[in-house]
Design a protein around this nucleic acid. Structure first.
Lengths: 208, 208
DNA sequence: CCGGATCCGTAACGATACTG
DNA sequence: CAGTATCGTTACGGATCCGG
């Protein structure tokens, strides 16, 4: 019953004592795109046992990273503060997505994370406006003001440009495999908005 | 024998497939401050079994994160690319260092990580010069050029200012618990260099 | 002595069955 | 739908042993 801890006077060790166990960071990734119910979480974490999910949720609530409200789980401020770390890890792992693996699980909400970690503030700074991405049926809005990205799963208000692409096309653009100029021939298309903003917005996403 | 994987088409999941197991990120933290031998690693990872350390080293070498050269292990470029993620995680965990725990393990090299994640480029940008910190017997050099920090365990050349403090004092300054102006009364002291640079350099480190 | 490998008890995880 | 209970499997932790 003794909870396993690294017992090191080190910030990284303390962080890993809280979020270093299996599934924990993936669970928090889910909540980074908005509140979720138990069933939704389970569906996006294939292979995780129901008991483990329940245990993790309880632990994270006790640690102050998440709150349970009327059956749905949401990040607290402390939990949301993990976003930079999660994105940094994901950015590091992004190159490993290059080789497609057919028997991997997949969820449209993963791409919201991809949008964030591949977003290049320096490139988007001058483009004011709301961009809306429709990826595999999921709508994501991003606005480039002040060089920061704000994504929201529940779009509020109209977007200045709406573009649509499947996840593979998006990842290929961000990964540098697909040139943005060729994206339109490869699955991305403009649904609404100015053509010029559409073209430039494809260049807002890249690694490195 | 089937290696455990999340099998998700997600950058974070792929990253965690490589560095998400127990001890792995702490092991990489050690190598972030320079090459190490097997024995040195084991000494700074108390509680880790010798078999586990050997297995992790083998796995990380196979994954291309580290190289073994004449008995010492060192990060590859791919492994060093994890630094932003490691620092982001450590920065998130830093507030949890506030309450001192007497029965935690401790190593002087961990403060090098603390130096990095609590370094504020915006504050140090105008101060050109080489700073040398001597923390609990370990010498660390940092130079603020272009607002970036470069730390090296093996100091090269002379520093413009040399200051000395114990780990607790340093962490207290970075954490905001200790005002830099009071630091000198609380264990920090200037060993060499201009007094003015010394004073200002204490303000280069903070969280948030 | 350093750098592991082998073995074994324990804790964590994974899958399924079961319940309010 | 949202978990709890149970149990077989895997990973980890600690100790001991081995080769250079």
């Amino acid at each position: 019953m003794t909870r396993r801890t690294y017992a090191q006077r080190c910030a990284l060790a303390h962080a890993l004592d809280v979020v270093g166990e299996r599934w924990t960071l993936l669970l928090l990734r889910e909540l980074l795109t908005g509140p979720r119910r138990y069933g939704e979480l389970l569906a996006n974490l294939p292979g995780m046992g129901t008991n483990l999910l329940a245990a993790r949720l309880k632990d994270l609530a006790a640690a102050g990273l998440i709150d349970k409200d009327e059956g749905t789980y949401a990040l607290t401020a402390r939990g949301a503060a993990l976003e930079p770390a999660v994105l940094a890890l994901a950015r590091w792992g992004a190159p490993m997505l290059a080789e497609a693996d057919e028997d991997e699980h997949w969820s449209a909400t993963w791409n919201v994370v991809a949008l964030k970690y591949s977003f290049r503030p320096d490139r988007a700074r001058r483009a004011r406006g709301v961009l809306e991405y429709r990826v595999d049926g999921t709508r994501v809005q991003a606005r480039g003001r002040d060089g920061e990205i704000e994504t929201s799963l529940e779009p509020r208000g109209d977007a200045d440009v709406v573009l649509e692409a499947d996840g593979e096309t998006l990842l290929a653009i961000a990964g540098g495999t697909l040139d943005p100029d060729d994206a339109e021939a490869d699955g991305a298309r403009r649904v609404d908005g100015e053509r010029r903003l559409y073209r430039s917005s494809l260049r807002f996403f890249a690694l490195g």
